[in-house]
Design a protein around this nucleic acid. Structure first.
Lengths: 204, 204
DNA sequence: AACACTATCTACTCGTGAGTAGGTATTGTT
DNA sequence: AACAATACCTACTCACGAGTAGATAGTGTT
């Protein structure tokens, strides 16, 4: 391989900056998930990266912004999954299931988990509202998928609001109990969960 | 009515003490649920009762103990519900459903909600372990009910562990979104939820 | 060579809130 | 009357952690 020059172009430098910022977010979200937002000081996060706290402030405004960024990354993944599900061909139930499986899977990754594990009381009213709006978009997408499924008869008639809330809650579970070193891959767990919710407890 | 003597018997005094202690717990759990454990100072709790912080320390050892007591009250309600469900006559599915409905309903009251809303990272390792053990007892009871249902054919064959976790997660949802002033009574919500989980999304 | 900008540090400030010391008033006990 | 216990207070201490001031070293720019 060619020896890399130590002199970076402007593009490389902004890219490197973005990478460092992202490294801070990743380190932070892992600690938030493992120990809780309030139990994690930015000194802790900095130490885990071998840097000092002010360096974090060089990349991110304050502790809350660190959290908000993490939450946003996770929510954007969910939003993208919803968009993709909408494009899926098939019956309403198929599209709904496609979204649910992705939803469960995302909730097992670092940024997805953070959205489940961190209660929004941790946030300032301002940030809380921003997050709330984005969560609402996800909920709306889910409700629409349920409604469409009912419309084409592939989903049993039910209250879409209650169904969406219940499905979401059920799929949030793994964020709490799943350990990534487990035997079953995330996607398998997600599929099993969605199967259970689709067919229900009673035998058919 | 007879004029009450201001002089209390020993029994009355210990009873009154217990009532005051309970009042502290109730005030605390409401604030914990509304604003989060870490966002609630014992000064706040004391102020809401018109007393001072040291008075709380007169009834309870420290802030963590306040929380642990609240959590325990909620978990004991769940344990009692499990015991009652076991005594119910009928098929496994009926007993399971009886428990699930109670479970959902308890999770909508103050002490039940606290168990869902307060992550256990807030606790010291010691307290965490105590709580964990009790939670495990609840989970075990739930799994057993599922297993019994599968055994008598009233519940579709599935992994009892995954099913128990998923059911619990789904029924934890209302702790987050239910507002007590809503139109639907708690029991109705609980029943609808359990119906949805019993029959599943797909039409029958 | 002079200047500016970026990345990083050490060493602070300062608010908050848990928990305590030590007091007072009231009631019960000997 | 003297003592003890209970319930409650005001006024602290003290640790922790978010956020900042200000220095330094390197790198790029004119």
């Amino acid at each position: 391989m060619a020896a890399r020059s130590p002199f970076k172009t402007a593009a490389e430098r902004t890219e490197e900056r973005a990478a460092k910022r992202m490294a801070v977010l990743t380190a932070a979200v892992r600690m938030f998930n493992a120990r809780g937002y309030h139990q994690t000081s930015l000194d802790d996060v900095a130490a885990s990266l071998g840097i000092s706290k002010p360096t974090i402030y060089h990349y991110l405004g304050n502790k809350e912004q660190v959290l908000v960024e993490c939450l946003t990354i996770g929510m954007n993944q969910l939003l993208a999954a919803a968009d993709q599900a909408r494009l899926t061909h098939g019956l309403g139930l198929d599209r709904l299931r496609a979204f649910l499986v992705d939803y469960a899977e995302i909730n097992m990754n670092d940024f997805g988990r953070c959205n489940i594990l961190t209660a929004n009381e941790a946030l300032s009213p301002d940030a809380r509202e921003t997050i709330r709006l984005r969560k609402r978009r996800i909920d709306t997408a889910l409700r629409e998928l349920v409604t469409e499924g009912i419309a084409d008869g592939s989903v049993a008639p039910c209250d879409p609001k209650l169904a969406a809330l219940t499905l979401a809650s059920a799929l949030n579970g793994p964020s709490r109990w799943h350990r990534p070193d487990g035997d079953l891959p995330e996607r398998e767990i997600a599929l099993k969960l969605v199967d259970l919710l689709t067919t229900g407890l009673a035998p058919r």
